[in-house]
């Protein structure tokens, strides 16, 4: 059974055991507009919670991807190389990297679905 967490930089982590699928939230993909490129790390790279591991680019903006967890990249979503627009079409189905989590306690610092929803409402009001 998986559980979904969100960071305040709008990445999500869908966690099942010690495996996390990391992508950008619906709020983030809407704010960014048409995604034209996803800059991804390589399998085997280490990512660190709070540090960037790549970027998503739209035509006139780029947004760093900040990892919500620390761990090793065990897979990247290669479909995004040819078709980055999938992030706009369904951001939850089209995760960006799969990470083997090394410190599950970091998840406690993230938001759940409900808390993230409130967070986004406040962001929009800003």
């Amino acid at each position: 059974m998986s559980k979904t967490y969100y960071s305040n930089t709008h990445e999500y982590a869908v966690v099942d055991g010690d495996i996390a699928l990391i992508g950008i939230s619906d709020f983030a993909q809407k704010a960014l507009g048409n995604v034209v490129y996803v800059d991804m790390p390589e399998v085997g790279d280490e990512v660190e919670a709070g540090e960037d591991f790549g970027a998503v680019e739209s035509v006139k903006a780029a947004s760093d991807l900040i990892s919500p967890v620390t761990g090793e990249v065990i897979e990247i979503n290669e479909k995004l190389e040819d078709n980055p627009r999938l992030v706009n079409e369904d951001c939850m189905a089209n995760w960006i990297i799969k990470v083997k989590i090394s410190d599950p306690s970091q998840l406690d610092a993230l938001m759940d679905e409900e808390a993230y929803k409130t967070f986004c409402e406040n962001e929009s009001a800003h």
């Binding site: 034209v36 490129y37 960037d52 970027a55 680019e57 739209s58 035509v59 006139k60 903006a61 780029a62 760093d64």
Partner: peptide, 13 residues
Amino acid sequence: TLQAREQHIRRDK
């Protein structure tokens, strides 16, 4: 095109 690579958007990256 591909302007998102450039300094005015990526700044220090």
